[in-house]
Design a protein around this nucleic acid. Structure first.
Length: 833
RNA sequence: GCGAGAGUGGCGGAAUUGGUAGACGCACUGGACUUAGGAUCCAGCGGCAGAAAUGCCUUGGGAGUUCAAGUCUCCCCUCUCGCACCA
């Protein structure tokens, strides 16, 4: 810092600057979004947080990424909707309330208040007037309405079934919420349990959810693959095998109808009802024992480990409807009751599992498919031949290729009425009943006379009571709270019992994106005009951990709401960005690992802008970000450097003509070139793939160029002031979405009346960005040997001559003959010798 | 096992369509200014050899295509994530 300068140089007082601008944005409602058909809309959404207490680095990163995009799109002229809210129902609130002897609502509200202050402190450009908290009756009443509507359409049903029960959370979990046999939330083992529960018929949308994946070109391939796998569609044949000495048939599902002539045994799941057929056979005891043992083993097994294949003869056989052969039935531990029909036609020659099983129990292997060259020999085979091929030993189908045979065999089965083409899915219906308190009540009523009936619409919402006492058992007070469950039947007005289960919290997050379009609307869940204007979400941002759970449910909900006439879109999120995790010392930040960095401390020390800058600079958004305290300091240093640069050069902004003079010296020509190249680079990085890290480094280069041209002393003035001013302004504008408080402050300080937040994004001038001279690389046999500085547009033959004449090139060519010369425009000359 | 993604200096990470590998930043080293420096500025910074000029090597490994390969093709290795007895 120059002591001699008369003007006192200010320090970068981030605290005062950030408070000042946050206050202005709030009072001026800078980021309020209103429908405006005259402008293109842009709906930017980040996954809303669970109000757990305080924000963490993952939030900071997620919302910083979103905020840059929101601010950038505004500057590009879009009418941007950028809302924020709270995914406020859920178990942590309930557990915390038990621990602190308070109400989950109180705990949640407190957290929301605190976290809201934190988010505001980060300077995120949300329209806070659209804030949503899903635990408020004004929100969940509509969810209850949707539930009733879905019930009326047959998309909701109740059944007794085996569910996933978490012993620690004391509630049922959906299939999507069981990760490797453990609870997604608390990681404790999940056990099966027979219970009543409410289900949403997501399987009714399986096909559309699957085909929709093909339309989601703005989603990461990885997420689409996960969704496709989860839906798990497979096409095949359902076929009945008549059981010997019984009226029953054993129905199987196969994706390989072409191997039906190779069936040598049947295998059924231990839970299969036809296990009962062993009664009265000599094997009865053995089968019962096996089933008992297998169930136990399945419960205790490590989900990563496959069980040793095992089975037992049922004592009964069935008949292959194609060959008439007698086929023994086995109960096998590897057959899943949940998939297909729970029964499999086993073809050891062409299925590896069946092969292993057959080898173990000495069951014959019958080859019915041969590869194009030769055929496997059942006597010497060591593994199943699973590829498609040509059918052999298959009656009238012999000689057909697998693909043709599939069609022919299905057609035959259908004609003979012994089977039919069938498509199965891995996807199961979504179990949404939760046995805990802190969730939206399910608006259903059980009446002895009328059965289970929905609550009348005008009685909604069914409000979650506040006068409750939670106890350490974790059991929901709703089950025993008479004032809640005692009610009248909406049909017959007789006394009835209200459903006391609550809804899965993923129900709230499945449609919040639509409610943001009209958060205060009271005439219905969604204002058609508003949702038609804003939806779909143009850019959605969140963690990959929701790849299946939330993102699949929300897609399902979009289709349901569309079919119910509430919205007009098929897919809720056009583009999806899955941001990476924040890592410290090689592991995800977590309390248990003790490697968390608290955003508050960093903001206190460096300010929000520095934290934003670093979290965007350290890695591209989709990758994991390794947190580095030193790196944060580097970002802070950079901002200080720009701050000093602007302070030292404030003179540039005092009445200098903004137009650029025609005749500039070399230096004054180089700077605008760099300026416009930077504008081009930053713009394309922001447009193309949100690679803020390279956008920031490009701006740093421009700052470096500025510092070396005009210095931080402002005294070395060989450069044209208008040129320097243009470059300096570009730095502030380009950085403004990333470090908004900082840029607004300097913008104002350099005499601008307007706000950066309302300013259009700069257009780069291709003429100004054009280089006058280029470095052309001279290669000999592909190795760089020399460089030439030439004027842009030097013709190829001239380049070739210059390269061949080049002294250094000559020394490499020596006595060798030049065989070929390749000239690449504006890039290089390669001399082949 | 299946599917997706990744492998580049001490570190985070850059490199349109194949065309100067290592931008930008961190760390480090030397110097300047200084009462001080954890501020700031200047210089250096992939490896090997060399005083230097410069040369050779270098994008997980190995082949190949090409005038030219981090980038394309084939094989292999490692890591991360997801699914996993799906019939």
């Amino acid at each position: 810092m120059t002591e001699g300068s008369t003007e006192k140089i200010k320090r970068y007082d981030f605290k005062a600057i950030e408070e000042k601008w946050q206050t202005r944005w709030a009072t001026e409602k800078t980021f309020k979004a209103e429908e405006d058909p005259s402008r293109p809309k842009y709906y930017l959404l980040e996954m809303f947080p669970y109000p757990s207490g305080r924000i963490h680095m993952g939030h900071v990163r997620n919302y910083s990424i979103g905020d840059v995009i929101a601010r950038y799109k505004r500057m590009r002229g879009f009418n941007v909707l950028h809302p924020m809210g709270w995914d406020a129902f859920g178990l942590p609130a309930e557990n915390a309330a038990i621990k602190h002897n308070t109400h989950p609502a109180a705990w949640t509200d407190e957290n929301i208040e605190y976290m809201k202050t934190q988010l505001k402190g980060m300077g995120f450009s949300y329209d806070w007037d659209r804030e949503i908290a899903t635990c408020r009756p004004e929100y969940y009443r509509w969810e209850q309405l949707f539930f009733v509507r879905m019930y009326e359409k047959g998309l909701v049903y109740r059944k007794m079934t085996t569910v996933n029960w978490c012993e620690s959370c004391l509630t049922v979990l959906a299939n999507e919420q069981v990760i490797d046999g453990a609870c997604w939330r608390c990681d404790n083992a999940v056990v099966p349990r027979e219970m009543h529960g409410w289900f949403l018929k997501i399987t009714a949308c399986a096909d559309e959810l699957l085909s929709g994946c093909d339309t989601l070109s703005g989603w990461p391939e990885k997420v689409l693959t996960m969704q496709r796998n989860w839906i798990g569609r497979s096409e095949g044949l359902e076929l009945d095998f008549p059981v010997e000495g019984s009226d029953h048939s054993l129905r199987i599902f196969t994706t390989r109808p072409d191997t039906v002539f190779g069936v040598t045994f049947m295998s059924i799941a231990p839970e299969h009802p036809m296990v009962a057929l062993s009664q009265g056979t000599p094997q009865e005891q053995e089968v019962a024992e096996f089933v008992r043992r297998t169930r136990q083993a399945l419960q205790q097994k490590d989900p990563d480990q496959e069980l040793e294949k095992e089975g037992v003869f049922l004592g009964r056989s069935c008949r292959n409807p194609f060959t008439g052969e007698k086929i023994p039935i086995y109960v096998a531990n590897f057959v899943l009751m949940e998939y297909g029909t729970g029964a499999v036609m086993a073809v050891p020659a062409h299925d590896q599992r069946d092969f292993e099983f057959a080898t173990l129990y000495d069951i014959p292997v019958s080859v019915v498919i041969r590869p194009a060259d030769g055929a496997p020999d059942p006597e010497t085979m060591t593994a199943a031949f699973e590829e498609p091929g040509i059918l052999v030993n298959s009656g009238k189908f012999t000689g057909l290729a697998s693909s043709e045979a599939r069609q022919a065999i299905i057609a035959h089965a259908e004609a003979e009425k012994i089977g039919s083409a069938k498509t199965t899915y891995r996807l199961r219906d979504w179990g949404i009943s939760r046995q805990r308190f802190w969730g939206a009540p399910i608006p259903m009523i059980h009446c002895d006379a009328c059965g289970t009936v929905p609550e009348k619409e005008h009685n909604l919402p069914v409000v979650l009571p506040t006068d409750i006492q939670l106890d350490a058992s974790g059991r929901s007070p709703l089950h025993t709270l008479k004032s809640f469950y005692e009610t009248r039947c909406p049909e017959c007005n007789g006394s009835a019992r209200r459903e006391t289960d609550t809804m899965d919290t993923f129900m709230e997050s499945s449609w919040y994106f639509a409610r943001y379009a009209c958060p205060q609307y009271t005439d219905g869940p969604l204002d058609k005009n508003a949702v038609d204007y804003w939806l779909p979400v143009d850019q959605y941002i969140g963690g990959i951990e929701h790849a299946i759970l939330h993102l699949l449910y929300a897609r399902f909900y979009a289709k349901v709401l569309r079919d119910l006439g509430y919205i007009s879109i098929d897919e809720p999120f056009t583009n999806l960005l899955t941001q990476g995790m924040v890592i410290k010392d090689g592991a995800k930040m977590s309390k248990s690992k003790g490697n968390v960095v608290d955003p508050n401390e960093l903001i206190e020390r460096y300010g929000a802008d520095t934290v934003r800058l670093f979290s965007l600079f350290a890695a591209p958004p989709e990758r994991d970000l390794e947190w580095s305290d030193k790196g944060v300091e580097g970002s802070f240093r950079f901002l200080n450097r720009v701050f000093r640069l602007v302070q030292a050069n404030r003179g540039l902004f005092n009445g200098t003509s903004p137009s650029l003079p025609e005749n500039l010296n070399d230096q004054s020509r180089a700077l605008p070139r760099k300026t416009h190249q930077t504008i081009r680079k930053v713009t394309s990085d922001l447009d193309r793939d949100f690679h803020f890290n390279t956008a920031i480094s490009a701006t740093m280069e421009l700052v470096n160029a500025l510092v070396s041209h005009i210095g931080e002393d402002a005294q070395d003035q060989s450069i044209d002031p208008a040129v320097a001013r243009e470059a300096l302004e570009a730095v502030l504008v380009l950085l403004s979405p990333i470090v908004p408080h900082f840029c607004e402050e300097l913008w104002e300080e350099t005499g601008h009346q307007s706000r950066l937040s309302g300013r259009p994004w700069p257009e780069f001038d291709p003429e100004a960005a054009k280089e006058e001279q280029l470095t052309i690389v001279v290669q000999i046999n592909g190795k760089v040997r020399s460089r030439l500085l030439v004027d842009v547009g030097t013709p190829d033959d001239a380049l070739e001559k210059m390269a061949l004449a080049d002294e250094r090139a000559q020394s490499f060519i020596g006595e060798n003959t030049v065989r070929k010369v390749i000239v690449v425009k504006n890039k290089l000359v390669n001399i082949v010798i």
